[in-house]
Nucleic acid binder design. Structure first.
Lengths: 194, 194, 194, 194
DNA sequence: CATGAATGAGAATTCATTCAT
DNA sequence: AATGAATGAATTCTCATTCAT
C-alpha cells in the first residue's frame, strides 16, 4: 500500500473541496477529516495547491479510465454511448463528490499545466468518439465541443439533482436519462422541417 | 438611482466571485475592481456574506425574469421552450459570468434562506412548465427534476464551452443547441413536427 | 513625516534583531514592540526578509554617511582616522544596536543584492581611504582588506565590551582606543627588524 | 571513542549554526548533514538548546586550550603574544567556522550558565595575561577589557575577511597582522625592537 | 458619505520533538 | 541504539472589517 495516509488525505480533500470549495477549506479541518496531524499533510503534498492538483488529477484520471473502458468495449455508437453513460453513472455512484469537484475546480487559477493537460486528454478522447459517431451517421452533425458541453453538462446537472435529493439514483432513472440524452445526440433520422 | 456605487460593487463581485470563487476573492481586490474604497463596500453590504447573497439573488432574479417572460409570451410547449432557450442565451450573452457564478455558488454554506428561496422559486417555476408540457403530451414522461437537471446542466455546460472559446456564441449554435436539447425533452413521438 | 509607524517598525526590528537574531524574533513580538498590529508591519514591508534588508540598509547607510563626513572634513590621514574613529564612536553611542546588528547579519542568507551592494560601497570607501593613506606614507603597507578587517573588527569588539558593561563608554576610552588602533595602522617609522 | 555520531552531530551543528544561525537551522537539516536520523540527535543531546551549548563549550574549550598552551610555552610578553596569535591562527585554520560561531552566539539567550562560565574563564585568562604584560612594562596602560575587546575583535574581523575571500590566509598575512596588532597592544616605547 | 490605514483573528506552513518500528 | 514518519505548537502572513479623518 503506497501509504494509506496519503489516500486518506486525498479522500478528505476531495470531500471537503467539493462541498466547501478549495479556498473555503482550512488545512486543519482537512487534517482532522483525514485523521492526521496538520503537519503530516505537508509530508505528502508540498502545499495546498499541490494537493488540489493531485485531487484534480486523481479524479480526472479515474474518470478517463472509466470512459476509455466503456468506449473500447463496444463497437457501435449507440452502444458506446450506453457504455459511456453507464460508466459515468457508476463513477458518480462510487465517487459522488468527484463530479462536483471537477466542476467546481475546472479552470481554477491554482491548477497547473499538468492538470490542465489531464483535462484536455479527456476532452480530446470525447471529441474523437463524437467524430467517429458522426462519421458513422449515428450522431447529429454539430461541433463536437458543443455536443460534449451539452452532454457533460447534462450529466453534471443530473448528479446535482442526486446530491440535492431531488432525483433518486436508481436503475430506472439511469435508463431514462440515458435515453433522453441520446436523443440529444442522435442524428435526426426523421426529416426535420425548421 | 439607488447609487451607482452599489451596482459597481455588485458587478465587481459577480465578476470576481465567478472567476476566483467567493472565498478566493479578497475584499480589497473587490474594492479596487469596483473603483471604491474598501470601507465603502460596508456602507452597502454589511458583510461579505451579505454581498454574496445579494449577487446570488440579483443573478437568479434576473434569470427568473427572463424565463418568466419567455414562457408567458408563448402558448405551446415547443414555442415556450424556444423562448426559454433564447432567454437563457440572451442572458448568457449579457451576463457571461452569471451562469458560472450560479453554478459555483449553488449550495455554498454562506447562502441564506432568502437566497435559497430564490433558487427554489426558479426551480418551481421550471417544474410547473415541465408538468404543463407533459400534460399536453409534448414532453417526455419523466420526473421534472431529472429533466430540469439535465437541461439546466446542458446549458451551463454550453456556456463553459463559450467561456473556454471552444464553441462560438453565434446564432447557428443557438439554433442547433436548442434543437438538440429539445430532442432531449420532447415526447418520443416518432414524427416530430416543429 | 514619512509615516512614524514605518520608523517605529524599523526601530523595533533593529533592537530585536540585534539582540535575538533575525530568525529568533517572532513577528508578533516585533509588532508589540513597535506598538502596531501584526498586520500593519506588512503594509510597510512585504515580508520579514524585506524588513531585515531595510534595517540592514538603514544601518549601513547611516554608518556610511558618518564615515564619509568624517573623512571629507579632514585632510591628513592621521586626522582622517581621528574623524573616522570619532564618527564610529558617536554612531555607536546613538545607535548602540546598529553595530551588533550589522555584525550579526553580515552575509545572512536573507540579504538581497542591494543590501550586499550597500555593504560593498562601505568597504570600497574604506579601501580608498587606506590606499590614499598608504600612498602618503602614513599607513602601514599591507592589503587594505586586512587592515580594514582588523580595525573594523577592533571597533566592533570594543562596542561589545560596552554592551557587556566591561568597558565604560567615555571620552577617555575613546581617546585611548583611538590611539591604540592608530598604532595598528600607522606606518612603522622606526626601522623594523624582523 | 565517545561515539563518532556525537561528534558528527557537533560538527554539523557548528557548520550550520555558524552560517545560518542557531534559530535559522532546522533540526532535520542538521540531522541530514550529520548523516544521522533526526531522532538520533536526541539520544546525544536532550534538546536543540543543549546541543547549542555543547557546541559553544566545545569551541570555547578548544580555544582556551590553544591559548593556554601558547602562553605557558613562552616567557616574555612579546613572545607570548606571538604564541597567542599563532594559536588563534592555527585554530582558525582548523576550525574556520568556530570564530563566526562564537561571535554569532555570544550572549544568545539560549546559552546556559555553564557556557557563560566557559566564556568568562577565557576572558579572565586573557585578562591575567594582559595585566602581567602591563606589569612588565611591555603593554600599553589601559583597561584590560578594552585591549582584549580590541584584539579579539581584530582577529575576528580578520577571519571574516578570510571567509569572504578578501584576504588570503597565508604565512605572510599571519606575520603582518600579528605585528600590526602587537603595535596596538605594545607600550608606547619609541624604540620597538622585536 | 467616502476613504484607506490599521487591526487581529485566522489562514498556510514550518519545525522541534516523540515514538513505533 | 537508530530511525524517520508523525505531530501540533509556533511561525509567517492574509484578509474581513473597523474607524479616524
Amino acid at each position: 500500500m503506497p501509504s494509506d495516509k496519503r489516500q486518506a488525505i486525498l479522500d478528505a480533500a476531495l470531500s471537503l473541496f467539493s462541498t466547501r470549495t478549495f479556498n473555503g477549506t482550512p488545512m486543519p479541518l482537512l487534517a482532522e477529516r483525514a485523521g492526521v496531524g496538520a503537519g503530516t499533510i505537508y509530508r505528502y503534498f508540498s502545499s495546498k495547491e499541490v494537493l488540489g492538483n493531485a485531487v484534480f488529477r486523481e479524479c480526472s484520471g479515474a474518470l478517463f479510465g472509466v470512459l476509455r473502458q466503456a468506449v473500447t468495449s463496444a463497437s457501435i455508437p449507440r452502444d458506446e454511448f450506453r457504455g459511456i453513460w453507464r460508466g459515468l453513472w457508476e463513477f458518480a455512484e462510487k465517487n459522488p463528490e468527484a463530479f462536483r469537484f471537477l466542476e467546481l475546480h475546472h479552470h481554477e487559477p491554482y491548477l497547473d499545466a499538468e492538470s490542465r493537460a489531464a483535462d484536455d486528454q479527456l476532452r480530446r478522447f470525447a471529441s474523437e468518439y463524437v467524430r467517429r459517431a458522426q462519421a458513422a451517421g449515428a450522431m447529429r452533425e454539430a461541433e463536437p465541443a458543443m455536443l460534449i458541453g451539452l452532454v457533460w453538462g447534462a450529466f453534471v446537472g443530473l448528479t446535482k439533482e442526486f446530491a440535492a435529493g431531488r432525483v433518486l439514483q436508481n436503475k430506472d432513472v439511469a435508463r431514462r436519462s440515458e435515453e433522453a440524452v441520446w436523443c440529444l445526440l442522435a442524428a435526426n433520422t426523421e426529416k426535420e422541417i425548421p
